[in-house]
Amino acid sequence: MRFTLLALLPLALANPLNKRSTACNNSPDLCSKSYGEITHLGAHDSPFVRDSSTSNSIAGDQYYDTPTQLDAGVRMVTGQVHKSNSEWRLCHTSCDLLDAGLLSAWLGDIKSWLDDNPNEVVTVLLVNSDSASASDLNTEFETANITDYAYQPDSLTSAPSSWPTLETMINNSTRLVVFVASLTTDDSYPYLMDEWNFVWENPYEVTAASNFSCVPDRPSSVSGDTSTALSSNMLPLMNHFLYSSDLSSLGIEYPNASYVATTNAASGGTGNLGSTATRCKSAWSGRQPTFILVDFFNRGPAIDTVDNLNNVTNAVGRTSLTTSAAGSSSDGTTINNVFKGLVELAEAAAAGSTPTMGNWIWVGGNWGSVLGGGISL
């Protein structure tokens, strides 16, 4: 009996994944796929939630918090990093507008989720709004005790021609991929990758459903040049979220929740996610987007399009969420209820009147700080 067990040991060690589970990122069909070969659903501005905890802030881009997003199949989470009172915090445009707390605390939540879900690979994309150094960010990751999960590329300056399979990343316990836009990389922290060395994106500031584009926009090295982008080995990220332009008179944009059921749908309606993804895949010579980034991911739901791209029909281990606005009273009613007076005043100003600062404060708060320039929420 002892000989039999020892003889079987190499077989068990050769395939440790099967000892835990046969599914990777919620599907057994994805285990043998490379990280760069599949499509990962991304939650745009993941920590900025529109719910009762934020008084249904119109700056919120999601109806559920990050762990719930991950439970439901999201595999890329993004957030904006700002420095406030000597702390690195997750804030939407400004910490005075929407403050989601310490970066390290959010990373700690992701670490706990990875602990509880050993067969899942997660990507974090940080928008480096206040130019944190690699050392600054590493301190936050160390505080969250999450660095042991981090994947390290062979080079920080050029994208690889191929990525490891999900199964390999899981077996190696390198299940966290970290991109930062933008970052001066440091070999001392090889897991912190500058996004623009590894990822290219289509345009993101879209206010009309008919204007979603597949043309590369960032980084500048591939802007407007699909051929160069596709030959760069960088991973394509497809932004697919709408801003509302109802306050365009003030240069203010905020997430468009009223149309998102169509924006995130697998089919039907102008600018739906499924048709746009199919169009981009065709424009990219059959290359499907590695990441699809959406607002209010549960609407649509957006995961249907991602499953279609990945040929996943047997997803397991996901939490099912309502495809409604999750109780938010602001979905589809923002202009009628919250901004009616402000919109009317902005329209009057655009028509040639000269409202006083008191008028602006009365209808919408102190907008003096933004009247000189636009702001995207």
Rank of each mutant, 00 (worst) to 15 (best):
V74T: 08
V312K: 10
N202M: 03
A159T: 02
I375Y: 04
M76P: 09
P153S: 03
V178I: 13
L192S: 06
H40N: 02
L9C: 05
S27V: 03
T305Q: 08
P28Q: 14
R318W: 09
E140L: 06
N336T: 02
A326M: 12
D217V: 01
W88T: 01
S223I: 08
M169V: 10
E195T: 05
S173F: 01
W88A: 06
S369W: 02
V294M: 05
I252K: 08
I170P: 01
N85W: 07
I58E: 06
F48V: 10
E201Q: 12
E347S: 04
K111V: 13
G79L: 02
T356N: 04
I252C: 05
V338K: 06
A14D: 12
D148W: 06
G358N: 14
R299S: 11
A43K: 13
S328C: 09
E140S: 13
D136F: 02
I170F: 03
T78F: 06
I303L: 07
S135N: 10
W113G: 01
P160G: 03
L5D: 07
L5T: 10
F296P: 03
L247S: 09
S245K: 04
A283F: 02
I361Y: 13
A150C: 07
F296W: 07
P153Y: 04
F291G: 04
L13Y: 12
S221M: 06
G300K: 11
A150H: 00
S182M: 00
S129C: 00
S248W: 08
S173R: 06
T323M: 09
F3W: 13
N202T: 04
G317W: 03
E205G: 03
C214A: 15
L70Y: 00
N56R: 06
N239A: 09
G36Q: 11
S245L: 02
D331P: 05
D186W: 06
F3E: 14
T66R: 02
T139K: 13
T228H: 03
K19Q: 08
A181N: 13
S53H: 05
Y191I: 08
M234G: 01
L230W: 01
S133E: 10
G42Q: 14
G374V: 09
P118V: 00
S258T: 11
P160S: 05
M1E: 13
Y243K: 10
G42S: 15
R287D: 00
S57P: 05
V177R: 08
S282H: 08
K111C: 15
N366L: 14
S57N: 10
A266D: 12
F297K: 10
A14N: 11
T228K: 09
W360C: 00
E201Y: 08
L342Y: 07
L377N: 05
A349K: 14
L98Q: 03
E87N: 03
Y259V: 05
V74W: 13
Y254G: 09
D194M: 08
N337P: 00
L176M: 07
S52W: 05
D61Q: 14
W113N: 01
S34A: 12
H44D: 12
S182K: 01
S227Y: 06
W163A: 12
N256I: 00
V370M: 11
T123H: 04
V294S: 06
L6E: 01
S324Q: 12
E167D: 09
T68W: 05
P47V: 15
A346K: 12
